[in-house]
Design a binder for these strands. Structure first.
Length: 466
RNA sequence: GGGCCGUUAGCUCAGUCGGUAGAGCAGGGGACUUUUAAUCCCAAGGUCGUUGGUUCGAACCCAACACGGCCCA
């Protein structure tokens, strides 16, 4: 026997539920003239209450859950479905005598796809964290809140696209396979192209390609896609993660600050109906404007602002910090920041004016050549992203790459390798440009109130179970 | 990398002092005229994460390993 290949003219369960909301107990949904309305629903059977000559099913689709009532004896006797079957039903919407919104089916359900195994416990759901990640389809099926979180994530992403599209940004796609990697401090994944007989890196950022497009005159571009970093896994790190980068010609980092704080606030309000979120035990308000804090002031608050490498190392070591893996001043300052400053940045904070050593693509400030026009923005003690006024002078950029190579020689494996092809692009001239990156998974954590990136990534990276 | 915790039926969990495996839900069979985790009866369901060790005997004690979680670095 062949099962149906389609179930046309389907209604959404949530919509039917709203339609019957106003009815009295025991009433049916009627159109003008007293004719009973009919609706067609499809979904998964998530509960069954069998009375013998009356059968009740709970049917679940993406939008919600509704009871299906089979009250005619012959029909009820023929209802042969088990928990987890995918069925289609047709009937009259209404409320039972006890007031439960229901679809009253006058014929048996149409089996669309039978379950060949058993669903997890429908009362306790699936709670084993490892099982939830490995069999996400069951997690989504059994846990409505999980389903809701991924719907929230999806809405958030489309709202971000809409926000940028409406402001004249062009969505573009640049290579995932790159002959050189750059645009961030991270170790890459390596792969091999057989025909071209060469290795490629999976991108760690889209930055250098997107800025070539600014050279090319596209003026406002963004890319929303996966980056890959061959690093540890934690509550805020997954080896592949979703990143938004945008570049805006004729803007500087102050313009970018205003754009990002408004984007996050507006997108959050559009998705959640409020700018207030709960995250890791804190109530956080994402509405603009956000607090501004200078990098140097942030470290000075903790008595850690000095440009002297030995002195900074001494102060950190004095406090019990292991600096053995921090070969440069830049690494030490970054370490100090992540230990003493970041965890305290709970309400949205724009940390700006970074030391030049940490920022190989950012333009120097007018006042101090050791400081660059760069900011990172933090919420809930977590970095959401990074932005700067982009270097558009080829000689300056070449010099920064050279400085990075010195750091590399000093033992910093994450320092930039340089990219002569990118420097060449800059020799053709690039308009002054503001650029920004935003960690999409981390923003999704904030909007869903989840503590772990694994709860907002559908299929998080796990070890093999051998 | 370190510490702690966990891993028993498809799922959620018990398992006492080391004496040979239990429940609920799901699945199978049956009863039942409006149920809400419906209820009731019957039968079935297991490589106790893996590998070693101790012991007359190990789900339980010991070691290593695997996977996961939390905390620390």
């Amino acid at each position: 026997m062949s099962l149906p290949k389609r179930f046309p003219d389907r209604d959404e369960i949530a919509g039917v539920r709203i339609e019957v909301e106003h009815l009295e107990a025991g009433a049916y949904l009627e159109a003008e003239g007293g004719v009973q309305e009919r609706r067609r629903l499809a979904g998964r059977v998530m509960a069954r209450r069998d009375m013998g000559s009356a059968v009740f099913l709970d049917l679940v689709d993406r939008s919600g859950r509704l009871q299906i009532a089979f009250l005619k004896k012959e029909v009820a006797k023929a209802v042969d479905v088990k928990l987890g079957d995918v069925i289609g039903v047709e009937g009259v919407p209404g409320k039972t005598r006890r007031g439960e919104p229901s679809l009253f089916a006058d014929e048996g359900p149409l089996l669309l796809s039978p379950i060949a195994t058993s669903l997890p416990d429908t009362f306790h759901g699936m709670t084993d964290v490892e099982a939830r990640y490995r069999k996400r389809y069951l997690d989504l099926l059994m846990n409505e809140d999980v389903r809701g979180d991924f719907i929230t994530r999806s809405r958030m992403i489309s709202a971000i696209r809409r926000y940028l599209d409406d402001r004249g940004f062009l969505e573009v796609e640049t290579p995932v396979l790159q002959p050189r990697y750059g645009g961030a401090f991270a170790r890459p994944f390596t792969t091999h192209h057989n025909e071209l007989a060469r290795d490629f890196y999976l991108r760690i950022a889209t930055e250098l390609y997107l800025k070539r497009l600014i050279v090319g005159g596209l003026e406002r571009v963004y890319e929303l896609g996966k980056d890959f970093r061959n690093e540890g896994v934690s509550f805020k790190h997954n080896p592949e993660f979703t990143m938004l980068e945008w570049y805006e010609a004729y803007a500087d980092y102050r313009d970018t600050m205003v754009l990002i704080e408004n984007l996050v606030a507006d997108v959050t309000h559009e998705v959640l109906g409020t700018t207030v979120v709960q995250f890791r035990g804190s109530e956080i308000d994402l509405k603009a404007p956000w607090r501004r804090l200078k990098f140097a002031d942030a470290l000075e608050e903790h008595g850690l602002w000095t440009r002297d490498e030995a002195e900074l190392r001494r102060r950190l070591t004095e406090r019990g910090i292991d600096c053995s893996k921090d070969p440069t001043w830049a690494k030490l300052a970054d370490h100090a920041l992540s230990v003493y400053v970041e965890p305290g940045l709970i309400q949205p904070t724009i940390l700006h004016d970074y030391p030049v050593e940490l920022s190989p693509f950012a333009r120097r400030t007018d006042d101090d050549p050791g400081i660059v026009e760069r900011f990172e923005y933090y919420v809930g003690g977590m970095e959401l992203g990074n932005a700067y006024s982009e270097i558009n002078d080829h000689a300056d950029q070449a010099e920064r790459f050279a400085d990075q190579l010195k750091d590399r020689a000093a033992g910093d494996a994450e320092a930039e390798e340089g990219d002569p092809d990118y420097v060449e692009a800059l020799t053709y001239g690039m308009p002054p440009t503001g650029g920004l990156g935003l960690g999409i998974d981390r923003l999704a954590m904030l909007l869903t109130g989840r503590d772990s990136i694994r709860d907002v990534v559908l299929f998080p990276a796990l070890r093999d179970r051998s």
